[in-house]
Simulated scan of single mutants.
Amino acid sequence: MREEALRELVRTRAEEPERLAATAAARRRRPRLTETGRLMLIAADHPARGNLAVGRRSMAMADRIDLLDRLRVALSRPGVDGVLGTPDVIEDLLLLDGLDGKVVIGSMNRGGIPGTAFEIDDRFTAWTPGALAAANLDGGKMLLRIDPTERSTVDTLESGAAAVSALAARRLMAMVEPFWVRRDAAGKAVNDLSPDAVIRSIAVAQALGCTSAYTWLKVPVVAEMERVMAASTLPALLLGGDPGEAPDEAYAAWQKALRLPTVRGLVVGRTLLYPPGDDVAAAVDTAVSLL
């Protein structure tokens, strides 16, 4: 980021915060989410839950200016449709670039911070359906972790159902990211990525709210994806996760899953924003080519 751009960003936030709403209202939106049936979104909501690590870099996402630079490179590449993020990130990008013609999805519930006593309490702490509509965004994304041993799971289910209904009433996408959760030997919450567990989580997620008309699923790539994706007729996007030191294996798995009829694209963050060698443009172009 050029120094003058950073200075103007900080100045606007300090002296003219009202410009944020005006910039959002003026953003040119697409008439439809997707014109080709495919979506390629860059995820940037990890920091809001304290998830700053990428592979062996424990604080990779801690530098906000560096993150914004990487996001701007990714969003500039051909075939990238838009971004998924929390208000702080989306508002920075709005002030820097306007996000005209991009699909912008707000991340809604970031309350379940890993490593805390309330980790599974995924309450809504960011965008609300009304705020998403007021900000001229295209939809909202919610995390749905189902832990059979945790009472607060039902609160997340109830809040998620209300959010799905409220988004649908505004004709905005509701992107639901479900996981069945198990406890390891130490009692730590771990996402169960077995095919049966993912199928079970999809079954619950797709029934949230008074209509599924605007619901999309965000699902992990696991074994037996043909059987997993047969659990729903809803459009689905594949999540990237953290591939560690083996991005090529992740790309191969995405490519295979993208052939399935309900899989409509990718929502990827750390894999593309912090690739080995830090060539963001090349990593994004590779992912786009899979579509």
Rank of each mutant, 00 (worst) to 15 (best):
A223H: 03
A163C: 08
A74G: 00
E177V: 11
L137S: 01
D92Q: 10
E3M: 11
E4L: 14
G79D: 13
P114G: 07
I146A: 02
A246T: 13
A62Y: 03
V104H: 00
G106S: 04
P276L: 05
V267N: 04
E158C: 07
I65V: 15
A133C: 02
D147Y: 08
V54A: 06
T156Q: 06
M40S: 09
A257W: 03
R7D: 15
T12L: 13
D138I: 13
L167Y: 11
V268R: 04
M225V: 03
T12I: 15
V54I: 07
D196G: 14
D196E: 15
L266M: 03
A53G: 11
K256W: 02
G115V: 01
R145V: 03
G269W: 00
S212A: 10
V288H: 03
A74K: 05
A168Q: 06
Y274P: 03
A287R: 08
A60M: 00
S159C: 05
L172D: 05
E8A: 15
E226V: 10
I65L: 14
I199T: 12
P129H: 01
D45K: 10
T12F: 02
A231L: 10
L272I: 14
E224S: 11
A213R: 11
A185L: 12
V89I: 15
P275I: 09
G50C: 00
E119S: 04
S212P: 07
M61S: 11
E18S: 12
G187N: 09
V181R: 08
R123Q: 05
